[in-house]
Design a protein around this nucleic acid. Structure first.
Lengths: 165, 165
DNA sequence: GTTGAAACCGGTTGTCT
DNA sequence: AGACAACCGGTTTCAAC
């Protein structure tokens, strides 16, 4: 008998071609009924249902959300920021991570390679609201040394769907 | 009687506080049943149902999607790119917009203010896959003059939920 | 993997307040 | 505009193939 470490194939399960088709459809429209998905990929409802549940259990499907129209809700301004931290302070990164996680205006925040430390994506009402955010929240953090702001003039493409082929 | 241009309040309908609570919940978890939402905001199912349908009709709710775990699906590398176009060529922007819209690796693409023209968010398998994308797809476009790539080392925050308060 | 059936539950609609 | 109840359709589970 093989030692346990070699006996766990099921933990490394990967979606097959059929699973990937299902994921593609759900990434575009999570409201599709199982019935509808089944008919599009020429299967019956039972296996489609089982595949979806399995992928949810295994963590391939993170969660289901609705996407709102930010303009309609008055959040017309999108800004990408480059942030550089003060490396002198040992706890800068932890402090900044925690602060940013709590800011509703910040949709995305990543540590990046290059001549600055963080890339942020920020959503606010307008230029004045961004000024408030910039002055009172972001640059107010002790860990922040420098910020560059890039205002979005036109959104060409936005999708949450990752390639699954 | 008022001229027609003043007689269209319904076209400028905005969500009230109850609507916004519903949107907040659906942004976090679109699988919540109407029943569950109703109980959380102390209403019965009928008004919740009507409010959701209205916001879908009016375009406040764009669509419902499922979010996948990109690492589990082998797309481990996230890259932000700054792209500068060749302004000599009149049709550069249209060409670039169209090309990028068709690239599955590009999740986000925006025209920005500043010392470059576009901000892109790209998802690929690994460094080698990014090299392929960079060499064969992005820098292969005639309209592209310059590209700077910023590799994501650590994703601190990612949400699709915009602030609705 | 398929079919069919059955139980269940949520969405949907109409009526009433 | 909200509550209540009845109906309909999809989900979920099961058995048998």
């Amino acid at each position: 008998m093989l030692p346990q470490v070699f006996d766990n194939k099921k933990n490394y399960m990967q979606p097959d071609a059929t699973d990937k088709k299902i994921l593609e459809l759900l990434q575009q429209n999570a409201q599709l009924t199982i019935k509808e998905i089944a008919s599009r990929i020429n299967l019956s409802v039972t296996p489609v249902h089982e595949r979806i549940r399995k992928m949810e259990r295994e963590g391939f499907i993170d969660r289901y959300v609705c996407l709102l129209n930010r303009r309609k809700l008055g959040k017309s301004l999108l800004v990408y920021c480059h942030v550089t931290l003060d490396k002198q302070r040992k706890e800068s990164f932890e402090d900044f991570n925690q602060a940013v996680t709590g800011m509703q205006e910040v949709l995305e925040c990543s540590v990046v390679s290059g001549n600055f430390d963080y890339m942020l994506k920020v959503v606010v009402e307008d230029a004045e609201a961004y000024n408030q955010f910039y002055q009172l929240k972001l640059s107010a953090l002790k860990s922040v040394l420098h910020i560059s702001s890039y205002f979005v003039i036109s959104e060409i493409k936005y999708t949450t769907g990752i390639p699954v082929r």
